[in-house]
Amino acid sequence: MGNEYILGIFTLAGINLMTVLGLSLLTGFTGLFSFGHAGFMAIGGYATALMTLNFHWPFIPSLMVGGLAAALVSAVLGKVTLKLKGDYFCIATLGFGEAVRLILDNVQTFGGARGWPGIPHYTNFWNVLGINIVAIIILANLIHSRHGRNMIAVREEELASQIVGINVFKYKMISLVISAAYAGIAGGMMGHYMTFLQPKMFSLVKSTELTIIVIFGGLGSISGSVLGALVLTSLPEILRAFSSWRLVFYGLAVIFIMISRPEGLMGGYELTPSSMKRLYRNIVSKRSKAVHSAGGDK
């Protein structure tokens, strides 16, 4: 196993993580479930490839265009669907994701179902890492502000949020647009990693996988999403030795976590320097207690 291979897995995990971070804001902090984020990845992926291939833009500005394209589409989708209550929004996103895939399948401009080859290989471990760090900082700063608190309030209790003067529709919209922008950028990174885009890469299965990662990591926790993306992207690779059994293990791992920790790996908690210090202190104090009681037994 070469260094190259490990970095490759981390790069893939980082690309997934980018979408998962956005989805974490939407699902974990605002309480809206989406099964169509692969659609936003597709829009971002194709838009970014269009910029680098046809307009010869540099990579990072092209990624921004990809994110912007996905954000614009999400604003239109949100305008139409965010007034829907509860599960209906989720179903609308599912329809949207599939619609994007089918359109790309049938429009021949970008190669249709055969795919779009020859995209330059711009994505590497380091720029994925950099973009993810920026994305995490933006997300954390947003969540720890009045805007983030308003989103959490919408998740907790919509009616009460309105009564304390929170524009529920506006905050759902902001959350959706930011999450779509993140997904769009992730799509752009993916295309320039695979050097190839195909509508099949953005199927319902992909959307579901992303939502599973968010729930697996823990709703309402950024560090949970990071952990979830790392574990669930690398798990199929680690289990490669079991060949056809690996997806069974993947499924079992998800089921096991959902039964033993329904709130997800992190379940609303964050790993920050201060929380780690507290955890360390707890463990140390427990151990010293254990030593004392052992001493007492003698």
Partner: peptide, 11 residues
Amino acid sequence: TACHYNANYSI
């Protein structure tokens, strides 16, 4: 959370 109304800083 409810105090948000008394601030106006942007995203």
